[in-house]
């Protein structure tokens, strides 16, 4: 029986989590969250002020990385002019969503767990309930709505930061491609649906991360130590989640159709 306990536990947690997440999403779609629209706007402000720069910074570094690896790889297959392909694919399709997911999990996800967890520990959530607020709506649904309001724009700006970094690495630093040549290939290898798919991938990741953060924070227990462990646990789940979404998204959007203007 001993070894069965762990998977059973996982399944039970998963079920509880789905129920909790369903409740939050239902409250956002049921428009009940708009009773607390002011709180949602406040959460938007917190997201913008505290997380934007960190996420852009990480994406920028990833863009540089993509640029140099891509330039070296294309030189080795004898097509240095095609370094722009890497900037278009590696940035837009794969690594910017991943980097965004990582940083969302690290900054926003754990932030939510820490915040809600300490509210739970100091009985503030119970106090809300006593005052007649629906605490799930007030705390979790507003955060989800805030994420949905802010993150698409932040993500598009982050893609811009990644592209700029790749441009810097390929054109300015390695310097084998002219700026015009880079941009010709770069624009040739992407189109608006790609941007939309990439955005979708990132938004699914962000939604998942906010929900997981809310679940672990809202259900934290066991004093300061409990908050710490809940934060650590949410991070584990988020990392696995981000990678799975990344893989499934790639398979779904580009698996059978590379959408590239080469050959027939």
């Amino acid at each position: 029986m001993g070894w069965l306990a762990v998977p059973k536990d996982w399944i039970a947690t998963f079920g509880e989590m789905s129920k909790f997440c369903g409740k939050i999403v239902g409250q956002v779609y049921g428009l009940r969250v708009f009773r607390f629209f002011g709180e949602a706007l406040r959460q938007c402000g917190i997201l913008i002020l505290s997380s934007t720069l960190v996420i852009w910074g990480l994406v920028f570094i990833i863009g540089l990385q993509c640029g140099i690896e891509g330039a070296y790889f294309d030189r080795s297959v004898g097509a240095p002019a095609y370094a722009g392909v890497f900037a278009a694919w590696c940035d837009l399709r794969e690594l910017v969503p991943y980097a965004f997911g990582y940083m969302m999990a690290a900054k926003v996800g754990t932030g939510i767990v820490a915040e809600l967890g300490s509210m739970r520990i100091s009985d503030e959530i119970d106090a809300l309930e006593v005052m007649g607020f629906n605490s799930v709506t007030f705390l979790c649904a507003t955060r989800l709505l805030a994420a949905w309001l802010v993150l698409p724009f932040m993500y598009i700006a982050a893609i811009g930061a990644g592209f700029f970094a790749s441009y810097l690495a390929v054109v300015q630093q390695i310097g084998e491609v002219s700026s015009g040549g880079f941009f010709l290939i770069f624009w040739m290898f992407q189109n608006p649906p790609d941007l939309l798919f990439s955005l979708l991938k990132a938004m699914v990741m962000a939604t998942g991360i906010v929900l997981v953060g809310c679940y672990y924070g809202y259900n934290a227990s066991g004093g300061p130590v409990g908050v710490g462990t809940a934060t650590a646990k949410s991070m584990v789940l988020n990392i696995v989640f981000v990678h799975l979404i990344g893989m499934l998204g790639t398979q779904l959007f580009w698996g059978a159709n590379p959408r590239a203007p080469i050959g027939g």
Binding site: G57, L58, I61, A106, K107, P224
Partner: peptide, 29 residues
């Protein structure tokens, strides 16, 4: 207190990510 531990974990993971990525770039280069 409790909020402090949570915040410490949050900051630690952010700083560790940024440090790792910046170091990765320099090392690869």
């Amino acid at each position: 207190g409790a909020a402090g531990v949570g915040r410490a974990v949050n900051q630690a993971v952010v700083i560790a990510f940024l440090g790792v990525f910046a170091f990765n770039y320099v090392f690869t280069q």
